[in-house]
Lab assay of single mutants.
Amino acid sequence: RKEMTAACTPRRRIINLTSVLSLQEEINEQGHEVLREMLHNHSFVGCVNPQWALAQHQTKLYLLNTTKLSEELFYQILIYDFANFGVLRLSEPAPLFDLAMLALDSPESGWTEEDGPKEGLAEYIVEFLKKKAEMLADYFSLEIDEEGNLIGLPLLIDNYVPPLEGLPIFILRLATEVNWDEEKECFESLSKECAMFYSIRKQYISEESTLSGQQSEVPGSIPNSWKWTVEHIVYKALRSHILPPKHFTEDGNILQLANLPDLYKVFERC
């Protein structure tokens, strides 16, 4: 597991931080080997919608929660590849102030007048994250320049770009939802926020969305749709870069829909 690298990086740093090793061990302890084997050997059937997909393993048909699986995938990559990410360069710098204002204007932020003026909160978020810029760049390849612009994001899987519609809320939550006081809790909560931002979430995906850094293989055609990215990038990574937690067998994120021999018997009677 320590050699797990989802995106190509030129050289690998050895990380011996106790906090990170502890988080890696927790993933191992909570892992479910049968689910790992199923995901490793599954045959992708198709997307139901951005949140759900169908896959077959041996004779069984499964309904998989793409949102939760991708979130767990990105969390584990962030923990196992800690401080070893490439950088996704933004085509132009994104001012943190503008991103924070967009987030505060969104109902998702939960902002009320009692929280104070949005401009003041946005300025605080910019200054707060600028103070964390060195650590964010060093460990997470999340790059913020001296003017308070976001200029780079971590490359977690080759050819995958997170849904940038979720970027404003991500920046807001970096400042408000991460435990910045304790090292282990900081790395864990920061990785979880980043994983949620990178995950496939239906509120940020339309039929026209593209999450891939590449064009489709047909010359002159439109960019790959999110469905292509889910199948050929995300579920491909799920084959080798995730140890599913045991609770996925109990919380409805992986559901067995049918045993195909039983279905064949039904059709034979028709």
Rank of each mutant, 00 (worst) to 15 (best):
E108K: 02
L99G: 00
H232D: 13
E113N: 12
F187Q: 06
S199C: 07
V45G: 09
V178T: 04
R11S: 13
K118H: 15
K131L: 13
Y160L: 05
I79P: 00
L90R: 00
G46K: 01
F197S: 00
I200L: 06
Y160F: 04
A237W: 13
A103E: 00
N159E: 11
L211C: 09
I242S: 14
E193S: 08
I15D: 12
D115N: 02
P10S: 11
S189I: 13
F85K: 05
R1Q: 11
K60N: 10
R13V: 14
V266L: 15
V87S: 06
M101G: 02
P219I: 09
L211A: 09
E134H: 03
E182M: 10
L102A: 08
D158A: 08
F170L: 12
I200E: 03
E147K: 03
L17A: 08
S225Q: 09
E185P: 13
M135K: 02
F170H: 02
Q56E: 04
I254D: 02
I125K: 01
K131V: 13
Q58Y: 14
R269H: 10
L155R: 07
E123S: 03
P168V: 01
M38P: 03
A237V: 12
H57Q: 12
E3A: 07
F128M: 05
I15M: 05
L121N: 01
F85D: 03
L69H: 09
N259Q: 05
Y264R: 11
K265H: 08
S221T: 09
L243K: 07
A6H: 13
R239Q: 10
N41K: 06
K130Q: 14
P162D: 00
H241S: 07
E29F: 14
S191V: 03
L39M: 08
Q56S: 04
E165K: 03
L121Q: 01
R89F: 15
L21T: 03
L150D: 00
L129F: 15
L190W: 14
K60L: 11
W228P: 07
Y198C: 07
L69K: 00
I125L: 15
N28M: 11
N41R: 10
A94M: 04
Y160P: 00
E143R: 05
A83F: 08
M38V: 08
E92R: 08
V45C: 10
V20H: 13
N179H: 05
K132C: 02
K236H: 10
H57E: 06
L172R: 01
L150R: 01
E183D: 03
L39H: 10
L54V: 03
T112P: 15
T249H: 04
R12M: 14
L136I: 07
P261S: 13
T249R: 10
L61D: 00
L104M: 01
S19R: 15
P95C: 04
E185V: 02
I200R: 03
N159F: 12
L260A: 03
P95I: 02
A103C: 14
R269G: 14
G148N: 05
G148M: 08
E268C: 14
L150Q: 00
L129P: 01
E250V: 13
N65T: 00
S216G: 07
S199H: 02
F197C: 01
L238R: 01
K192R: 09
A83D: 14
Q56T: 04
E193M: 05
R13G: 10
L156I: 05
E182C: 05
S212G: 04
L61H: 00
G166M: 07
P168M: 01
I125R: 01
E92F: 10
P154V: 00
H232F: 08
P50V: 11
E114G: 03
T176V: 05
I254A: 12
R239K: 08
L260S: 04
A7S: 11
P163V: 08
Q51R: 10
T67V: 11
A55P: 00
V218H: 08
M196L: 13
M101W: 15
E25F: 14
L102M: 06
E188L: 07
E231F: 03
I157S: 06
I200Y: 09
D251R: 05
R201W: 05
K184L: 07
K68Q: 10
Y139P: 02
E146G: 04
E123G: 04
P95N: 07
F97A: 03
G116I: 15
E217I: 06
A83Q: 03
H232S: 11
F85T: 13
C8D: 09
G46N: 03
W52K: 03
V161F: 02
R36C: 14
P162G: 01
F82G: 07
W226G: 04
A103F: 15
L21D: 04
I171T: 05
Q51H: 13
L164I: 02
E127I: 14
D145I: 02
N224P: 06
D262Q: 13
E29S: 07
P117N: 15
Y124I: 10
L211Q: 05
A55L: 09
N253M: 06
S109K: 01
R12E: 10
F140R: 01
L35D: 10
E188W: 10
E268G: 12
H57T: 04
S199N: 01
P93L: 02
P117I: 15
E185Y: 09
Q30R: 05
A6Q: 10
P93V: 10
D262K: 12
P117H: 14
K132W: 15
G252P: 02
R89D: 13
R13T: 10
I200A: 11
S141M: 12
T5N: 08
L21E: 05
E127R: 02
S91W: 15
G110L: 02
R201N: 14
D98S: 05
Q215C: 05
E119S: 09
W228T: 09
I205Y: 08
E92A: 10
Q58I: 12
I205N: 07
E33Y: 14
P93G: 08
I169A: 14
L153G: 00
L96V: 13
P10F: 12
G213Y: 06
L102Q: 04
S240I: 10
E165N: 04
R269K: 05
L88M: 08
L174D: 00
S106K: 02
L61N: 01
G86D: 14
E182S: 05
S43G: 09
E123R: 02
A55E: 01
Q203C: 10
E182T: 06
L153P: 00
E37I: 12
I169L: 08
T210V: 06
E231D: 11
Y139A: 05
T18S: 07
L121P: 15
F97C: 02
R12A: 09
N16L: 14
L121K: 01
V126A: 08
L164F: 07
L104E: 00
N259M: 05
F267W: 14
R173I: 00
S191H: 02
Y80Q: 03
L23N: 14
G110N: 01
T66N: 11
L17M: 03
L35T: 04
T59C: 10
M135T: 02
R89I: 14
K246T: 12
Y62K: 02
L54M: 07
E185K: 03
F248L: 06
E25P: 15
K227R: 09
T5E: 11
L156E: 00
E114T: 06
T5Q: 10
V218E: 07
W226V: 08
G31W: 15
S109L: 15
F44V: 13
A175L: 15
G252E: 10
G220L: 13
S106N: 05
R13S: 12
L129S: 01
A175M: 15
T249Y: 06
I233G: 14
P219F: 12
A53V: 08
I14S: 05
T18A: 06
F85W: 14
D105L: 03
R201H: 13
K132T: 01
M196A: 04
L260V: 03
S22D: 11
L104K: 00
E147T: 06
K246F: 14
E182F: 14
K227F: 08
V126K: 01
P244W: 14
P117L: 15
L164D: 03
L23C: 10
Q214I: 11
D105T: 06
L150H: 01
A55F: 06
Q215H: 08
W111P: 02
F140Y: 05
S189W: 03
I144Q: 01
F128T: 01
E268L: 13
I242N: 12
F170Y: 03
T249S: 05
F197R: 00
E143V: 11
T249D: 06
L35V: 10
K118A: 15
Q24S: 13
E185W: 11
L99M: 04
L156T: 02
K2M: 13
